[in-house]
């Protein structure tokens, strides 16, 4: 997994609450059996004026001129600024895959849906929770200044604005550790294989039916 330590990038708006995973990446694109290539269909129904199809070349599709990610000023944005409960809905990891493939390294919101939040960490994306007031301030500053870039420091757990305001954020220690070092958590868990086996032995004695095989 890609590590995340520090990142400075242009912020772009997704200025609404409850952005759901169907909006982030509509279902027809989930038919892919790959992990990559979802970026061109990020926010597909908002970004383009036509209905997108899987495996379609997107360069000739009509862009929605009112959708901020299509504005020249947000070109190359890598920090998404949004409102509360971002990523609600399905468990599709295609949502962070699409954000990452588009170029986003961090999403800042007052709150996130849990499964989406968790999925971000598996893909080198840092979801940052800041208060509604702070997020509102960032929105206002971003709208007022073209090229508005935020500096994120995971080690220090801070977001710094171009004006020098520093906002601290919370993050689980384990997730921070994995993201800072780009660690494969399957490998980490397998270091505890003995503990898993010991648990199975204990549990099997008490509840043997839990270990009955699924048969064909």
């Amino acid at each position: 997994m890609k590590a995340f330590t520090q990142h400075t990038g242009i912020a772009a708006p997704m200025d609404r609450a409850n952005v759901d995973t169907d909006m982030i990446i509509p279902k027809q694109f989930l038919k892919s059996i790959k992990r990559t290539g979802f970026g061109k269909n990020l926010f597909d129904e908002l970004r383009y004026l036509d209905e997108g199809q899987p495996d379609q070349e997107c360069t000739g599709r009509p862009l929605n001129p009112e959708f901020p990610l299509n504005f020249a000023r947000y070109k190359g944005a890598s920090v998404l600024l949004t409102r509360k409960n971002f990523g609600c809905g399905s468990s599709r990891e295609h949502a962070p895959w699409a954000l990452e493939d588009f170029g986003f390294r961090s999403v800042i919101a007052p709150s996130f849906a849990e499964i989406f939040y968790n999925n971000c960490f598996k893909n080198g994306i840092l979801p940052i929770t800041l208060s509604e007031e702070v997020v509102e301030q960032l929105f206002q500053e971003m709208y007022a200044h073209e090229g508005y870039a935020l500096a994120i420091d995971l080690e220090a757990q801070t977001v710094t604005t171009p004006g020098g305001d520093v906002f601290a954020f919370d993050i689980d220690e384990f997730r921070k550790h994995c993201l800072l070092n780009g660690l494969d958590d399957i490998g980490l868990t397998l270091e505890h294989a003995d503990a898993i086996k010991a648990y199975e032995t204990r549990r099997r004695k008490k509840a043997p039916w839990l270990f009955d095989a699924v048969r064909g």
């Binding site: 992990r35 399905s90 468990s91 599709r92 990891e93 962070p96 499964i115 968790n118 999925n119 598996k122 893909n123 689980d172 384990f174 958590d185 399957i186 868990t189 397998l190 294989a193 898993i196 199975e200």
Partner: peptide, 20 residues
């Protein structure tokens, strides 16, 4: 509960989830 694809792989490989 639901999990993402990376966790599907994690559960297949380890029979466990890292959770809080």
């Amino acid at each position: 509960h639901g999990i993402g694809t990376s966790e599907v792989e994690h559960v297949m490989a380890t029979q466990c989830l890292v959770a809080k």
